[in-house]
Amino acid sequence: MAINSEDNRHITSRWLSAGTDEPRLMIAQACLDGCTTMADMRSQVRQQARRQTKQWLNHVWSPSSSDLAAQTRTIVAQKTKCFEFNIIYTQQGQPLAVHPDFGVRGVSVSHSGIWYAIATAARQTLGIDLQCYRHFGSSARQWAFTAEERTQSIPLLCAIWAVREAFLKSHGVGLPHLLQTIDIDWQQQRVSNLSANLDERMFGLFYGLYWVCAICYCPTKDYPEKNYPEENYPPRLDVTTLSTSVPVTMLSGRSA
């Protein structure tokens, strides 16, 4: 589902219908002025991502059409300009989406080149990172990748970086951090860093023509108030519900 907006060209909008515990994801290409410097481009991408985040949050978390009372409150709120999420930041720089009626929702934003990605979930334990394909210098390779990983292809190196940075964001932790110490289980789609006391997360990967995007979030079994059958652990991001106007593939293994 795409929101009508001048910023929304080439949108990947990720919707999961199984419940609000699962994350939503949107990836978009920014609309840039004709002649722009690199600094101006980055500024425009950040500004468009910021505007789009608030608009998209309001759309994602709007009340169900079956809830008449909630719909009535929404109409009143829209007329009084109160129906709006605001983005606040923790001391560590982690963004949170706050609404006067709905409370706090998890949100994470990333941008690379002319692309940006936004994710939201009911829980605050959420992180996203988008990486346009690029080469890594020797220092970055030593710091971010294990000896085995350094021999891999550029798309896979970007995916590894994205997973690890999204993992840190899901904990409200940013760079610098020795990325190579973060362990990725490609088969189980799990990532952890026990030596740094960072809890395990699930992850999903989305590949586009120019970028790879990783999203990290809590496994369902970490929600004790939910009585999920064991066979439903963990939740999987289902690419069949992905509506996109750009080529995108969901992959999770080293064969990517």
Results as ranks from 00 to 15, higher is better:
19 G>D: 06
45 V>E: 04
97 A>I: 09
29 Q>F: 00
209 L>C: 05
143 W>H: 14
150 R>I: 09
84 E>L: 10
37 T>V: 05
108 S>H: 08
246 V>K: 00
98 V>T: 10
170 S>Q: 01
198 L>C: 09
89 Y>G: 05
161 W>G: 09
64 S>M: 05
117 A>K: 01
256 A>S: 13
183 D>V: 15
251 L>D: 08
200 E>R: 07
108 S>V: 07
251 L>G: 11
116 Y>S: 04
223 Y>L: 15
191 V>C: 10
33 D>P: 09
96 L>P: 08
191 V>N: 05
225 E>W: 13
14 R>C: 14
60 V>N: 02
251 L>Y: 01
152 Q>G: 10
154 I>Y: 00
149 E>L: 03
101 D>G: 10
91 Q>T: 15
87 I>T: 08
1 M>N: 11
139 S>V: 14
93 G>W: 04
39 A>P: 01
158 C>L: 06
59 H>W: 13
213 C>N: 05
107 V>R: 02
73 R>I: 01
215 I>F: 00
201 R>Y: 03
111 H>S: 12
236 R>W: 09
125 T>E: 15
129 D>C: 06
181 T>L: 11
84 E>T: 15
216 C>A: 09
176 P>K: 03
129 D>K: 04
182 I>W: 02
116 Y>I: 03
231 E>T: 12
236 R>T: 14
36 T>C: 11
130 L>W: 07
54 K>Q: 15
45 V>F: 06
32 L>Y: 03
